[in-house]
Every structure is written in C-alpha cells, then in structure tokens.
Simulated scan of single mutants.
Amino acid sequence: MKPLVLLDVDGVLNPTGHPTPDFRRYQCTVDGHAYTVHLNPRHGPRLMELALRTGAELVWATTWEEHANEWIAPRLGLPSLPVVALGRDRGSEHGEMFKTRYVADHVGRRPFVWFDDQVYQEDDDYLRAHQGLTDFLLVHVPAARGLTSEHLARASEWLTLTGFSQGF
C-alpha cells in the first residue's frame, strides 16, 4: 500500500507568525472572502522530493479543500492533489480535532504521515483506538513558524525506517 503524506495549509504551509524572507505574500479570494497567505516556493519541490523518494502520495487535509489545488498548489509548484473531504464539525469524542474523523475515513488502512498544526495526543489516541490504525505519524507543526526541514526529515525517516517506502 502506497503511504500518504497529508498536508494542512494554514499553520503548516502558511505560517501564522512573521514569515521569513523566503516566503512570498499572495492575495487570494475564496468563496468571496479575501485572504493573505505567505508561501515558501521551496516547499513544493521539497514535498515532491519526499513523495518521490519514499513512494508516498501527497494529499490535502485542509479546510481549504479543493481551493488548495486552485490557490496553493500552483504557487508551490505542486500538481493537483487528492483532497480529504471535510464535512461539518461533528464535535469530538475525546478531544480530537474535527478533521481527525475525516482523515481516518480517507486513509482507510493506508500508512500515513500527517503535517498539521492542530494534531495532538488526543488525535493519536482517537486514530489508534477508534480506527485501529497503527501505521501513522502525526507531525505537529508549530503554526507560527510552519513546516521546516526538521519536519520533512522526520517524515522521511519514519517512512523509510518503517519500510513503507520499499518497493516504490
């Protein structure tokens, strides 16, 4: 089974803190609302490299949903990616964030790495207990700084050491 690399946008690719000079500022309009996003164009090639080197498939796991393919992917040099369909916030059972149930439905039994600024122990617990999933790595990305080389290296190491990248 090909592993997945799930990507959030806000807080991960679009940090909430003061962006460093390697980020570019963009204005976009989604469903009539104007947004300012700061994106690092190096993230796209580095994510593609991670996917190619490990045999993983990149997937959006963001409230931007399909808008990430319209506004984020082209500015990072990414192709159109599959999207985890998010429904309404159904609350939580044990403190997990609302996206966690939708991510679990999307991944099925496939191994995955999930980059998000809102994943915590409660999300890990939910996935292990309620979905029976064990082959995943949640990478908490501090929202103020966003995705770093260390986060990418951690994902690469996990995918490689666990053997999910073999045979691709």
Rank of each mutant, 00 (worst) to 15 (best):
D124F: 06
T36W: 03
S149P: 09
G32D: 11
S165I: 07
H67E: 13
P111F: 07
V59G: 01
P74T: 09
A85R: 15
E96C: 06
V9T: 00
G95E: 02
H33C: 12
S80I: 08
L7P: 03
N14Y: 05
K2E: 11
D123A: 05
A129Y: 02
L50Y: 11
M1N: 06
C28K: 00
H67N: 13
V83R: 10
G17V: 04
D89E: 07
V83G: 04
S80W: 13
F115S: 14
G32S: 11
W71A: 00
R25A: 09
H130M: 03
H67Q: 11
V107Y: 08
T36H: 07
L152E: 10
P21H: 12
D125R: 10
A143P: 09
E157D: 12
V5T: 07
G11P: 00
L76G: 06
T16D: 00
H106R: 03
P142A: 10
A34G: 05
P82S: 05
G163Q: 02
V107L: 02
P142T: 04
E157W: 13
L159H: 00
A68K: 02
R154P: 04
M1I: 07
E66Q: 14
K2N: 04
A85K: 15
R25Q: 09
K2A: 09
A144S: 14
A61V: 06
D116G: 02
R88D: 09
V141N: 00
R90A: 13
E122H: 08
S156F: 14
D117P: 09
